[in-house]
């Protein structure tokens, strides 16, 4: 059985890069073990990025650090379809974070003070900082997974490593 590389299963592929890769994994794991922003909301943000990138591998993945019922199927589907902002399935705090994530995805310079203030209103300054760090990690991992998948396709010798 093959598992397509995505942001959630990237660490084994990067481990060839040495000690720094282990540090990256530790940072990644810490995002899912903090109390500032619910980890399930970070998973919703990951799915939001997957939708915006139209990244099939990412849309099909699920964050293994979370319980399988952490994000219900209807909430997951609403994010994937871009309907979260108008849905009663999401709290105002979740909508603020998902909205902020969309600015971040487009360009960090495009983030408005209003979008940041809305996040802070629900999660405080530490929550805003944690969300920014998490979005950076999620986006970086999506980018890297895309690059490694492409490299595997164009450089077949790498395929055994990067497409498990």
């Amino acid at each position: 059985m093959t598992e397509t590389l995505s942001s959630v299963n990237l660490d084994a592929a990067l481990s060839k890069g040495g000690a720094a890769a282990a540090g990256l994994t530790r940072l990644w794991e810490s995002l899912w073990q903090q109390d500032h922003v619910p980890p399930a909301l970070l998973e919703l943000c990951r799915l939001n990025f997957a939708r915006l990138y139209n990244d099939t591998a990412e849309l099909g993945a699920a964050m293994p650090y979370l319980p399988t019922d952490a994000v219900t199927a209807d909430r997951r589907q609403a994010v994937i379809e871009g309907k979260a902002h108008d849905s009663a399935l999401f709290s105002e705090a979740e909508k603020a974070a998902l909205f902020f994530a969309e600015y971040y995805w487009m360009d960090a310079q495009s983030i408005t003070d209003e979008a940041a203030d809305a996040v802070k209103a629900h999660f405080g300054e530490p929550g805003l900082v944690l969300l920014i760090e998490a979005l950076g990690c999620i986006d970086a991992r999506i980018r890297t997974a895309r690059c490694l998948r492409d490299m595997a396709a164009f450089a077949p010798a790498m395929e055994a490593t990067y497409v498990r």
Binding site: L14, G17, A20, C137, T144, L148, M151
Partner: peptide, 12 residues
């Protein structure tokens, strides 16, 4: 492959 992985970790 190892250097590519290392460069990508640095880039991230």
């Amino acid at each position: 492959e190892a250097e590519i992985a290392s460069l990508l970790v640095a880039l991230m």
